[in-house]
Amino acid sequence: MPEIEMTVNGKPMSGTVEGRTLLSDFLRDMLGLTGTHIGCDTAQCGACTVHLDGRQVKSCNVFAMDAAGAEVTTIEGMANADGSLGAIQAAFQTHHGLQCGFCTPGMVMAAAGLLKENPAPTEAEIRAHLEGNICRCTGYHNIVKAIQAAAAELGAKPIAAE
């Protein structure tokens, strides 16, 4: 079985995979990064959303081997350097944008993906962007509020990266 290498949350990582190993399973089972969640088996729920070379993807829909050599960012890489919550994470807490927490990593990664492309999204743009992420707890209301607040916060102070 081939050994692959990739950069995950800024650190070099490697592991042995089968051809059928999904990126989501590689992150969870090989690297122990269990913040990336598996909520379905049809690439619908978005709980496994990560960033692959800066692009938002569902990691259950990517073979680990196809991510060899790539830069991957997961929920574990979203906090500030000092360990405090990043702007999007903090906004989710302040605005109660999560309840059971299971869809949350995917929601935060999707929100980060959106704000990178569109720093000041409208409510409709936020809702459209989250169409591939299902939340069963919040009714999306406070997720929308959290992303609006994060956009305002990030827009107010220019930053280099997500």
Binding site: R28, T34, G35, I75, E76, M78, L98, G101, F102
Partner: peptide, 19 residues
């Protein structure tokens, strides 16, 4: 009050059975 459980959920440190 802000939820104390949120910090672990927002940083990928929740501990669900599958984890």
């Amino acid at each position: 009050s802000k939820r104390r459980e949120d910090v672990r959920f927002l940083t990928g440190k929740g501990r669900y059975t599958a984890d």
